[in-house]
Design a binder for these strands. Structure first.
Lengths: 234, 234
DNA sequence: AACTGTGAAACCTTTCACAGCT
DNA sequence: AGCTGTGAAAGGTTTCACAGTT
């Protein structure tokens, strides 16, 4: 799975004795909440008022025990014998994910991938959308993409607000520098699409999406299947 | 996690008593091998002959104990007191991932994202590259993208070969049908970029990359940080 | 009866720490 | 000395199965 959250960032607070409610939802659960949310939105669009763990689990592609355990971490508001109230659950999950008050998303790197991300419908649907596009290439500055005007990366500090999320879609060679500049500008959550390992200071969350790694993992499974087939006849 | 090859192929072989033919490499390890491989290629390009677990781990962004444990699953060939032979390890990992004999990659959906993927340098670097582009829109058929000619999706069976990997970069609404067609054509490994849950028969490996989910996970962490800051004063 | 919420078991992953090789 | 390989401990995740609620 994704390890997501960058390394040594358990600095938040020392194991203080007077720690308050530490509901602390597990990472694995967090990673599934967006999937549940999407399924719930679909159900709501279909006019469903309530849904059972069984039905929601199927729509989300997980099993129902896992779904119930996940929701129980949120303090869950299902009704035994009935199921979950769709609208209520949407509210709960959105709130948990912090989608209620949208934070801005700043994308750096307007090459092929950056353009694709800027135009990606999935973002806009609920809660999150890209608010600013930046690039180091002055030839691209001023260009209009998906309703946004590309600005120069030197304007970074002007477009970053408290709680911004940074998205890096630059070539690998530029990624670490862009990352450093994002961090310097106050960004503490970064999504990296460049195929390189980034280093961030403690307290900064870093996730990565690496397209070629995904393909290589599939290559492994494909390879293993082939080996099994040919070797099984022994 | 990912559903992988349904229960069907867990541990086909009985625990062989004698020669320790290595027992299946854990999923978590597989997911990191491509990262190690990239770091190793970088080291090789720099002329390094050997590397310690400490140094390689740092380049890959993991800790050294994890790296050593991961490599030990491959039957690892390090030398105590010295480290790992870079070229040898590249060979080992490539072979484990099945990159030695490239399998073809077929991409369906040549919208913004599909174009970005087709031009994505990361793929080509080592072992894997996209071999065919397909789209349902006849207006796009014939177009040249990154040296490939877009073909109509009805040609699917002509471009799929045994061991092909399918990549879905269509809108969500079309994804399941495309997936079904890929499966029907014999594809057993699929990477899905469409923001929707796909259903595949047992024996087919499915991985997904969902851009908006990644952002929502970061939104959660950002949100939590904000809450901690404002609420910590109690 | 239908369905949720949850302890407990099973399983997987990471980290530790050190034996053992070069 | 330096470094790998690995049991064992610690921690996290999934699944089971059923008590408890409507």
């Amino acid at each position: 799975m994704h390890n997501g959250v960058a390394s040594a960032s358990s600095d938040a607070a020392a194991p203080s004795p007077g720690r308050s409610r530490r509901a602390s939802v597990p990472e694995a659960t967090i990673a599934r909440l967006p999937v549940y949310l999407r399924a719930l939105h679909d159900l709501a669009d279909d006019g469903r008022q309530t849904v059972s763990s069984e039905a929601l689990a199927e729509a989300a592609g997980v099993n129902s025990a896992k779904l119930r355990k996940d929701l129980s971490h949120l303090g869950s508001y299902g009704t035994r014998g009935v199921g979950y109230d769709v609208a209520n659950l949407v509210e709960q999950i959105s709130s948990e994910l912090g989608l209620s008050h949208r934070c801005s998303v700043v994308l750096v790197g307007v090459g092929n991938l950056g353009r694709a991300l800027a135009g990606y419908g999935g973002f806009a649907t609920r809660g999150l959308a890209i608010d600013a596009l930046l690039d180091a290439d002055r030839a691209r500055v001023g260009e209009q993409i998906s309703g946004l005007t590309v600005r120069h990366i030197d304007d970074l500090t002007e477009v970053v607000t408290s709680g911004s999320i940074g998205v890096i879609a630059t070539p690998a060679a530029a990624a670490q520098e862009v990352c450093d500049r994002l961090v310097a500008a106050g960004v503490t959550s970064i999504l990296n699409f460049a195929p390189t390992v980034l280093v961030v200071p403690p307290g900064v969350d870093l996730r990565k999406v690496d397209l070629s790694i995904e393909l290589q993992i599939l290559s492994f499974h494909e390879h293993r299947k082939a080996v099994q087939l040919s070797g099984a006849s022994a």
